[in-house]
Write a protein that binds this DNA or RNA. Structure first.
Length: 503
RNA sequence: GGGUCCGUAGCUUAGUCAGGUAGAGCGAUGGACUCUUAAUCCAUAGGUCGGGGGUUCGAACCCCCUCGGACCCGCCA
């Protein structure tokens, strides 16, 4: 059974699947595992016949923790202030949190994740946490005990399960609570300000370890996937679970712990080290279903070594091959079939598309949209560039080639007059083919066989023989499979190049 | 120091919760056809299940130790 179904099969009753990512920097491919794991559980739960909702909580109340490497030094003055209240790095009018959230929401749309987006700030502003904060404030010392006991750390000095945002300096990390009388929290701030915060408004927040179980309680979360950092013993799930049970009298959600996505040869993705592929970039150079497939095909507890070059290409081959097998009715293991199901963006039925590899070749032959369109239509396999999603797919292919394709896969057609260095025997072969090309059928296997025969009867070794064509066309000694390659080229162009090079 | 997850064929991995002949895809090799940047079809090879010990009639699976990788044990999320 597929991991998502195995997980869903243990659930019963109505479900609320919750995910959350902090918009403190570019949301990257590693973070995508959180939301996609959630999405797959969500779908599996629905398929298991359970009434299920799926939410994504954007933690825009979190303070900026430090000046990240991608920020200018000016940001020092914003450390400690909530992300929704500080400016975005591009100097635009959007708040910091929305600046990083927006491209992520685009990605979700592209990969077909159907999720309710909730900003944590709105939960505070709407009074959703009023009860949770009140209960926490009334059980302050009990919570403190739990945190100390479960995490094994001593909490020094004064402490409160709710930190007001200073009404003067805007920081959430510099206030100290003086007194509490529902719904008002009196505080003073290191900046010298004294004021009162209303727990029904976005005037303060709970620290993460309390906020998390408060979300479970206030929203009724029943399922949550999270990274293994939260899952360690003494980690935030452990403390959250005990706070949920002891203070809020609710059951902690069922969970699924997922492993990290590593960049092949470079280690873990961290926005702080710059070793990172933002999620929106991934959808620029990979088809969306492949991003899902990357996550769907392996159990969450295995780490993924992501290789955007050849690795991505073979992942795409695997996906396309799997699709073909299913379509033609070959026997396919249940789990693999299910992985493919879960990789289809929501609401879309998978349709056969021109293979990625084929497009990699075509796009390099026909470098303008117009010529590519003509070629696609001529081939009869496709309605052209404007047909459903084709333009997007082509953009993706071009982007992949320029960013991640191995050099050996790149080529560009030489202009008609370019001279190349090949020897007499090679020229002879080109000449012979030139004489025959008008009388043979112009399809890949006929061309290939013809060339093969010519090379064979000339007594040349195939490698050298084939190389003469590649040299003439693209100036390299290797290229796409020759018969297939030629059949996709304009005949006039081929004639021109071969006669230029064989004389 | 304490803890968690992962290690199975060249690569990606299934199988571990409920012990019972280690499977698949890709790649490789050979052949059909001297065939590259997945042509196709057929066939073949490839594994001390990271290592050692234990429990058992029987261990990839359970227990202990150990090596390698990742991560946690922050009033950080």
């Amino acid at each position: 059974m597929h991991w998502a179904d195995a997980f869903a099969s243990k659930l019963s009753g109505d479900q609320l699947v919750s995910t959350g990512i902090s918009p403190s920097g570019h949301i990257h491919v590693g973070n995508m595992r959180e939301i996609l794991t959630g999405d797959m559980i969500y779908r599996a739960s629905l398929d298991a016949g359970l009434k299920t909702r799926f939410i994504y909580l954007c933690d825009d109340m979190d303070p900026l923790r430090k000046v990240y490497p991608f920020l200018s030094d000016d940001y020092a003055k914003y450390v400690g202030k909530p992300l929704f209240s500080i400016p975005a790095p591009d100097g635009g009018s959007k708040p910091y949190s929305e600046y990083f959230l927006a491209p992520f929401l685009d990605v979700l749309k592209r990969v077909g994740v159907d999720v309710e987006v909730i900003r944590t700030r709105d939960l505070y502003a709407g009074g959703v946490f009023e009860e949770a904060i009140d209960m926490a404030m009334n059980n302050s010392s009990l919570i403190r005990d739990i945190l100390e006991k479960v995490s094994g750390r001593k909490i020094e000095g004064e402490w409160s399960p709710y930190n007001p945002i200073c009404s003067s300096c805007g920081r959430v990390n510099s206030t100290s609570v003086v007194s509490y009388e529902r719904p008002f929290v009196k505080y003073w701030c290191k900046c010298g300000n004294e004021d009162t915060a209303d727990i029904r408004k976005a005037e303060g927040k709970m620290p993460w370890r309390i906020e998390w179980p408060a979300k479970w309680f206030a929203l009724g979360v029943t399922v949550e996937p999270f990274g293994k950092d939260h899952g360690a013993p003494g980690g935030s799930y452990d403390t959250g679970k005990m706070i949920a049970e002891r203070i809020y009298k609710v059951k902690a959600p069922d969970y699924l712990i997922y492993e990290r996505i590593l960049l092949k040869g470079k280690g873990a993705m961290h926005s702080s080290t710059g070793n990172v592929i933002p999620a929106y970039e991934m959808t620029e150079f990979s088809p969306p279903e492949i991003l899902r497939y990357l996550i769907a095909r392996v159990h969450p507890n295995r780490h993924i070594d992501f290789d955007p070059g050849n690795g991505l290409l073979s992942l795409i081959d695997e996906f396309e091959g799997l699709f073909q097998s299913i379509k033609s009715g070959e026997p396919v293991e249940e789990d693999r079939k299910r992985s493919l199901d879960l990789s289809l963006p929501s609401g879309s039925l998978y349709e056969e598309k021109i293979s990625f590899r084929h497009l990699v070749t075509l796009v390099q032959i026909y470098t303008t949209d117009q010529s590519l369109d003509i070629s696609l239509k001529r081939s009869g396999v496709h309605d052209g560039i404007s047909a459903n999603g084709m333009a997007d797919r082509i953009k993706v292919v071009r982007e992949w080639i320029s960013r991640y394709a191995p050099e050996s896969m790149k080529f560009s057609l030489l202009p008609g007059s370019e001279k190349v260095a090949i020897d007499m025997s090679q020229k002879a072969i080109l000449k012979e083919f030139l004489g025959k090309m008008d009388s043979i059928q112009w399809d890949s296997s006929t061309i290939h066989n013809e060339i093969h025969d010519i090379i064979g009867s000339a007594g040349l070794d195939p490698k050298t023989g084939f190389a003469s064509f590649y040299m003439a066309l693209i100036g390299k000694d290797k290229g796409p499979r020759l018969g297939y390659f030629l059949s996709n080229l304009e005949k006039d162009y081929v004639r021109k190049r071969l006669s230029e090079c064989s004389s």
